[in-house]
Design a binder for these strands. Structure first.
Lengths: 193, 193, 193, 193
DNA sequence: AACTAATCGAGACGGTACGTCCGGTCTTGCA
DNA sequence: TGCAAGACCGGACGTACCGTCTCGATTAGTT
């Protein structure tokens, strides 16, 4: 009952957070600054998000009902599409500085850790599993590889490129798609007799 | 002139920092807490390190005169050894929480960014370049691959495994060595005529 | 036109305010707490009272159509009755903590100041004036003393006893009545020739 | 050990508090405003005073080593001097608004209550006791009156005049001295046989 | 043996962000 | 229109931390 939440306030918070993230980065983001820019009171923020981390997560980690990745017909194509999706997520101006900040703060709050895991690990691994099963069905793969390992191979290089090398990931998706497909389809050397 | 620095103070700072990093994480680490635990004054810290980041870097990022990775005779072996070195670096109790914190703070300080880049990117890529050149010399590779890409393939999955999946990287080195070697040695499909 | 105000709501507000005043004091009194305890909404309060001060005033300062103090036949007796009335007003559990809070907030709001003055100063001084005029008529006093001064002599000691000394004012009315009557009826020393 | 408190900071806090009290009153006084005006950090304030009340008390209730009131030779004169001292205390620009605010907040903090009592009640009553004993020794009084009662008679009317009537207490000291002396020296009517 | 100069522990300092709390206003839907 | 529920803005509170600074007390090397 009572007065319902004003959806314009929701929007204003998220927008202001994204703008400030893009402008000042995660560390330079202030709750008061968000409130002021959004033209709202701090209480309106804390009514929605318990901590700064929660708010940034909601604002920066744009996770709609991720549409299941399309079937491109080949393992390599599917992988390339998946990598490109991840790249697109992480290169959104707000996300870039937020992801690392949140990742660093995970040690502080178990809640945040669970939330992060659900979004990035569980969700992505589900997509990867589907993708691999299609490859098995097609005959590209003989057995289903370790999903966690493929997840690491897919997301890891994107992280390194963005956050360690600070390079623009142009062409990364295609390259990674090809390389990972090659790695997975190569027969491991049979154990010596 | 004047009184020389006390090397026991150096030790006490680094030890206390490592212990507190392992116990409270990067975000929970306080300069006052380090000083108290080390039994020293804050001025002794700031005489040595300009910022919290500098101190943590010195304490957590154990970078001795990296001994050039040994030649194991195969690309796969060399890659496995390299991955294992990276894993060992990052799984040191203090490093785990420090690396992400520092990475997140890089946006704040250009100095830190340069320092980090020198240590992680330049150094590792030099090792990778050598490793790949050996493989070319052996005939395992026909041409020298893009070093940045291989760097991403080598370090990225380690990051994902540790910081996203929060799994212990047992056996990761061997698996990654095999997969990356396979990916690099597979001939890319020739363009259709 | 529309729905008439619910008198049970009026009662609930006043009762809750008094209970909370007695329990938490003026500073600890919250509008939300009053609403919750009264089982009503905050709008019902603010429809009746513009500010917290107004509400507390209405709840704590019990001012009916003050029955003119009876004529006891002597100045001393009249004074004692008046003091006792003031004591009774101020020792009501809710009033004790409210009066000081309101007095302190007077600087903030001129409206409250006027309201307070009307209730405490004007009203009481009117009573005192009548009382003194009776004494003049009786011959107990030769001239009418300064009403403000007598007002200060009558109300001040009650304040001190309650709010500075935190003592129960047992017997205070009788004592004050006797002392003030004595002071007023004593001939001031004639100016020396 | 360590760096000693900077006495200029002490001064700056007290001065800023007094100025703001005189300008904005007790309710309008903000810790941030005090810090800003004093040109210091809030931590410097909270290192010295646990709460806003403590700070205001220290700043507004100017209580040096109260010099024992002089012996004027008569009870009336001694009383007038004492009243004037109290008036002077309370009419200091900072004190006027602070005293009521603190008095109102006493319910919140027992510490503050004790502090207040020590300063106003114990100290003043000690002065009054001495004054009355001198009057007994002189023969002006036959027996020592109730100190609490005289305390109420002395301080109460000042409170009423300042805080209820909002009048300037010109001439109040002389009037009160005369009236209270008269009240105390008048023989109570002997009980009828 | 005195002097000089830098170090040391302790802790105060300015500044800034945090998350909480309240007062007074506004907005729902029900009666 | 009244009412309960509760969201909203604004702004103060007291806490915590960073990096700087100031003490008095060491502790070398230099006169």
């Amino acid at each position: 009952m009572g007065r319902p939440r004003d959806s314009r306030v929701d929007e204003a918070i998220l927008t202001a957070t994204r703008e400030l993230l893009a402008h000042s980065g995660y560390a330079g983001l202030t709750m008061d600054a968000v409130a002021e820019r959004a033209g709202i009171g701090k209480s309106a923020i804390y009514r929605r998000y318990a901590t700064k981390q929660d708010m940034v997560f909601a604002a920066a980690i744009h996770v709609p009902d991720l549409p299941a990745s399309p079937d491109t017909g080949t393992l390599e194509g599917d992988l390339a599409v998946l990598v490109q999706e991840i790249v697109d997520h992480l290169t959104a101006p707000a996300a870039t500085s937020a992801v690392l900040g949140l990742l660093a703060d995970i040690g502080t709050s178990p809640d945040l850790a669970v939330h992060f895991h659900q979004t990035f690990v569980v969700r992505e691994q589900a997509g990867i599993r589907g993708l691999l099963e299609r490859a098995v069905a097609r005959g590209e793969l003989r057995t289903l590889p370790d999903v966690s390992l493929v997840h690491a191979l897919v997301t890891g290089p994107v992280f390194t490129t963005l956050y360690l090398q600070h390079r623009t990931p142009d062409g990364l998706a295609a390259q990674l798609g090809r390389l990972i497909a090659a790695a997975l389809t190569t027969e491991p050397a049979p154990p010596r007799p």
